Simulated scan of single mutants.
Amino acid sequence: MSLLLGDTAPDFEADTTEGRIRFHDWIGDDWTIFFSHPADFTPVCTTELGYTAKLKDQLSARNAKAIVISVDTVDEHQKWISDIEETQGASVQFPIIGDPEKKVATLYNMIHPNADAKVTVRAVYVIDPNKKIRASIIYPPSAGRNFDEILRLLDSLQLTDNYKVATPVNWQDGEDVIIVPSVTDPEEIARLFPKGHTEIKPYLRTTPQPNKD
Score class of each variant (00 low, 15 high):
residue 2 S to N: 09
residue 4 L to Y: 13
residue 5 L to Q: 09
residue 7 D to L: 13
residue 9 A to Q: 10
residue 10 P to R: 01
residue 14 A to N: 01
residue 14 A to H: 02
residue 17 T to N: 00
residue 19 G to C: 04
residue 21 I to F: 00
residue 23 F to E: 00
residue 23 F to C: 00
residue 29 D to T: 10
residue 31 W to Q: 08
residue 33 I to R: 08
residue 36 S to H: 11
residue 37 H to I: 09
residue 38 P to F: 05
residue 41 F to I: 10
residue 41 F to D: 11
residue 42 T to A: 02
residue 43 P to V: 11
residue 46 T to H: 05
residue 50 G to W: 07
residue 54 K to H: 15
residue 57 D to T: 15
residue 58 Q to I: 09
residue 61 A to C: 11
residue 63 N to L: 11
residue 64 A to R: 13
residue 66 A to I: 15
residue 67 I to M: 04
residue 67 I to Y: 02
residue 74 V to N: 02
residue 74 V to W: 01
residue 74 V to D: 02
residue 78 Q to W: 07
residue 80 W to D: 01
residue 92 V to Y: 02
residue 94 F to L: 02
residue 95 P to H: 03
residue 99 D to C: 06
residue 102 K to H: 05
residue 102 K to F: 04
residue 103 K to L: 08
residue 104 V to T: 00
residue 111 I to T: 04
residue 115 A to M: 12
residue 121 V to H: 05
residue 128 D to W: 05
residue 130 N to P: 07
residue 130 N to D: 14
residue 130 N to Y: 13
residue 133 I to F: 13
residue 134 R to M: 13
residue 134 R to Y: 12
residue 135 A to I: 10
residue 135 A to P: 09
residue 138 I to N: 07
residue 143 A to R: 08
residue 144 G to H: 03
residue 144 G to A: 05
residue 145 R to A: 11
residue 145 R to I: 12
residue 152 R to N: 14
residue 154 L to H: 10
residue 157 L to F: 01
residue 158 Q to S: 08
residue 163 Y to V: 07
residue 175 E to V: 10
residue 176 D to W: 15
residue 178 I to H: 05
residue 179 I to S: 00
residue 183 V to T: 03
residue 193 F to Q: 05
residue 193 F to K: 05
residue 194 P to Y: 12
residue 195 K to Q: 01
residue 197 H to A: 13
residue 205 R to F: 00
residue 208 P to F: 13
